[in-house]
């Protein structure tokens, strides 16, 4: 794999430093671009035994961007985001959130980040309302502030009906939504969302997309990992394609996809598409 991945990142990152006028929201938050990027990952590396999950990965997420992180299963997306948000200690490399080192000054850095991680549980014996309140209090907000924000978030995410139900009794989509509310409650400047749309129904997904777009328009920054290319193409203004723990290409969506669709470009970059029709007995039905 490394044979064709090597030249690509060398060519791609410089291109993204001068974004074209295409992405509206990013351009709207112009003044913020003077400071440090919302998230800067430098040389992140993680090994699990023999397997290199993330291999010297570097990525810059500009302030005010809606950044998509795409890649096949097992590409290292979750591992990368876990290291970026302080959940997983990198073997090497650095993660800077608005210039604050996640691993040197975790408490300051974490207060800037709203995190929805994939594959970890929630404290699901709390009701939805309690869970969001819990997160707000953990971030040090005062009681009145938390109560107001929890009310707003439950309304925004259409969870008011389920506010008093234990999270363990939620459907998968509702669980994602309450986790998103937990990530938003302390008004972070950077949202890191790992697979936020998995098993969310289309209406809720559209609502979440609107919320995120509004958040970006107001100067926030969002990173979303996903393997739904179509969604990323429509929603994000920047995208990075990750495979085998490396960034294959990164830049604005238009730069990355060129004249084709993001999905075709992705398949072209990552490879592995087969055209078999399956065994004969399976085609008969």
């Amino acid at each position: 794999m490394s044979d064709h991945s090597a030249p690509v990142p060398a060519a791609a990152p410089p291109a993204m430093s001068a974004p074209t006028a295409v992405p509206g929201p990013a351009a709207a938050s112009g003044p913020a671009s003077a400071g440090p990027p919302a998230l800067q990952l430098t040389g992140l590396t993680k090994r699990f035994g023999e397997k290199v999950a993330v291999d010297d990965l570097s990525l810059t997420v500009p302030v005010g961007s809606f950044y998509g992180l795409v890649g096949p299963n097992g590409a290292g997306k979750t591992t990368t985001l876990s290291m970026a948000t302080g959940l997983l200690r990198p073997d090497a490399g650095q993660s800077l959130v608005h210039g604050v080192d996640m691993w040197r000054d975790p408490i300051t850095a974490k207060s800037l980040v709203g995190n929805l991680s994939d594959g970890v549980k929630l404290f699901d014996r709390l009701t939805g309302e309690q869970l969001v309140t819990y997160n707000g209090l953990l971030f040090g907000l005062d009681r009145a502030e938390v109560a107001e924000r929890v009310g707003d978030l439950l309304k925004l995410l259409d969870l008011e009906q389920a506010a008093g139900t234990l999270v363990v009794d939620y459907s998968a989509g509702m669980t994602k939504k309450i986790a998103l509310a937990c990530a938003l409650v302390h008004a972070p400047r950077l949202l890191v969302l790992d697979e936020p749309f998995e098993s969310v129904d289309p209406v809720s997904a559209a609502n979440i997309r609107d919320i995120l777009t509004g958040y970006v328009q107001n100067g926030g920054t969002v990173i979303v990992s996903s393997h739904v290319m179509d969604l990323v193409q429509r929603m994000c203004d920047h995208v990075a394609v990750v495979a085998h723990g490396r960034v294959l290409v990164a830049g604005t969506v238009d730069e990355v996809r060129g004249s084709s669709t993001l999905e075709d470009r992705f398949v072209e970059l990552v490879g592995g598409r087969t055209h078999a029709e399956g065994p004969e007995w399976l085609r008969r039905s």
Binding site: E129, Q130, L137
Partner: peptide, 20 residues
């Protein structure tokens, strides 16, 4: 079990100090 409480009832979170 489908147990649920009314909106706005955060139980002990409203009683104990509002600190981490």
């Amino acid at each position: 079990g489908g147990k649920r409480v009314a909106r706005g009832k955060t139980g002990l979170f409203g009683v104990l100090p509002a600190t981490p």
